[in-house]
Nucleic acid binder design. Structure first.
Lengths: 157, 157
DNA sequence: TTAAAATTGTTAATATATAAACTATACACA
DNA sequence: TGTGTATAGTTTATATATTAACAATTTTAA
């Protein structure tokens, strides 16, 4: 179904670039909504889950990541990390620790609660994301990935 | 460049579905950031521009759209439209009018200021979106559109 | 060594989004 | 006609995101 049909628009799109960009945008929104619904049963959000995933798989030698690293890996503003980590700290999933090498820096670490939670939730997430992407086969997904890489490359200029 | 490289991750992605979904998500975020930067010079946001575009091209016989219609066309919650239209009303771009056919309903209309603004801004937007999508040729864009349609179709189940 | 430039995390203000609950209104059905 | 259900928009609280400005700290360059 075309986006025009899905959004029930009277008039379609004259410029294919505009249509392509809107398709990316709204597909992401649909993915996010579906993910949000999934994570709701775990009482956290997709963004918080992403933080945990980053801490599990991308932690440095200090056993965590700095807020600046998190903001870089999530493509969001540093200011946003503050309240995000506040909420996750409050929920008991992460702690802020000081960095012995740099007094400006916090190292964000998963708590035992956070680790346990993540370990339990990950298989369910894996299952869910596979379900979510059943519209494409493996080869189509790989092609989509490389196409979107091209889009992003074109944005860098 | 792969997402792993862009985000400077130590560890890549084990599940291609996850990688594909993240590519959609982050590409949309990159598009949005670029669009935000563009619209900043016009002192409005991409979401507000989208509202204006919808009012110009999708208005009904009453010369506008209801808030519920806008929320459907934008795939966002009705509650979100309230404050969005508040801000646009405050900026003088739109007005809320009553709907003679249904006393619960507001019809959102562009003001003369809003119409003039949109008419001036649209050609610049067209130019900009073409520039933003230069990573793909026309055929690749059409292929991307149909792939994303498949993703969304798979999400409906 | 010193001063300038860069980086880290926070704060405050703003924008976009969600959910739940509500009132008023409209619709559907018996 | 009356009752139950659905819808429109708002309010409140919460989450995610941006910007600009700031103080503390670190890095860079002269």
């Amino acid at each position: 179904m075309s986006l025009k049909e899905e959004l029930k628009l009277k008039k379609g799109f004259d410029i294919v670039e505009h249509e392509a960009a809107l398709n990316v945008y709204f597909t992401a929104a649909c993915l996010k909504k579906r993910a949000d619904a999934f994570f709701k049963s775990f009482s956290l959000t997709d963004v918080q889950f992403n933080v945990m995933m980053l801490l599990v798989y991308q932690a440095g030698p200090e056993g965590g990541l700095s807020q600046a690293q998190l903001s870089d890996m999530m493509l969001v503003n540093r200011a946003n990390i503050t309240t995000l980590i506040d909420r996750m700290e409050k929920a008991g999933f992460v702690i802020r620790t000081s960095d012995s090498a740099d007094r400006r820096t916090n190292i964000i670490r998963l708590t035992a609660k956070g680790k346990n939670f993540y370990t339990k939730a990950e298989p369910y997430y894996d299952q869910q994301i596979k379900k979510m992407m059943t519209g494409l086969n493996q080869s189509e997904q790989k092609k989509l990935i490389s196409t979107l890489e091209k889009v992003r490359a074109g944005l860098k200029e």
